[in-house]
């Protein structure tokens, strides 16, 4: 099936490892199928394209029942870092790229990366705080115009 006339717009609203990866995989996979794909980073999802933070994305260990560990244990100092490190090792073994590398690759596939204007204002950021692959800081209206006639995925 020719998917090259299809388009997907993916909203990344979470700043955790498990919140960001699915969106990146969906965007990369869409481009691999020849679809147009755009990523819109909003709220804590903006950390994925934040120059200082995108190398330090952590897995959420509090309030994450999927980890099957006691909630109190997830909150202990260092647990999030240890679990993140463990997950990163497993991903590396499967040749899944790190978040910075993955985002650079997705940009190279021709997908568009955009930051949310409201979030940039809220957090007091400028374009200089974001990685160079971010094509622009756009409003929700710009996003809908870009997304028109395609699918929208919210993560």
């Amino acid at each position: 099936m020719d998917l090259s006339t299809h388009k997907v717009s993916i909203i990344v609203s979470q700043g955790s490892l498990e919140g960001i990866y699915p969106a990146l995989i969906m965007a990369n996979g869409a481009r691999a199928e020849g679809m147009e794909a755009n990523l819109f980073f909003t709220f804590f999802g903006l950390d994925a394209v934040h120059r200082q933070r995108h190398e330090h994305i952590k897995m959420s260990t509090v309030g994450n029942p999927g980890l099957h560990m006691a909630t109190w244990a997830g909150g202990l100092p260092g647990v999030s870092s240890v679990m993140t490190h463990y997950m990163e090792r497993k991903m590396e073994a499967l040749d899944i790229p790190s978040i910075p590398e993955f985002i650079e690759m997705i940009s190279d596939t021709g997908a568009g990366l955009y930051a949310c204007q409201a979030t940039v204002d809220l957090f007091g950021l400028t374009k200089d705080d974001l990685i160079e692959q971010v094509e622009g800081i756009i409003t929700v209206g710009d996003f809908y115009e870009m997304a028109v006639d395609g699918h929208i995925i919210y993560t």
Partner: peptide, 28 residues
């Protein structure tokens, strides 16, 4: 190979791969 594997091992970068095969390099 997938696009990522192609980009890493074929000697052609991901950017170039999409220029050569715009409708999806690995698939096409």
């Amino acid at each position: 190979p997938t696009v990522r594997a192609l980009g890493k091992t074929s000697g052609v970068s991901v950017k170039e791969l999409y220029q050569l095969f715009p409708k999806g390099p690995a698939k096409i």
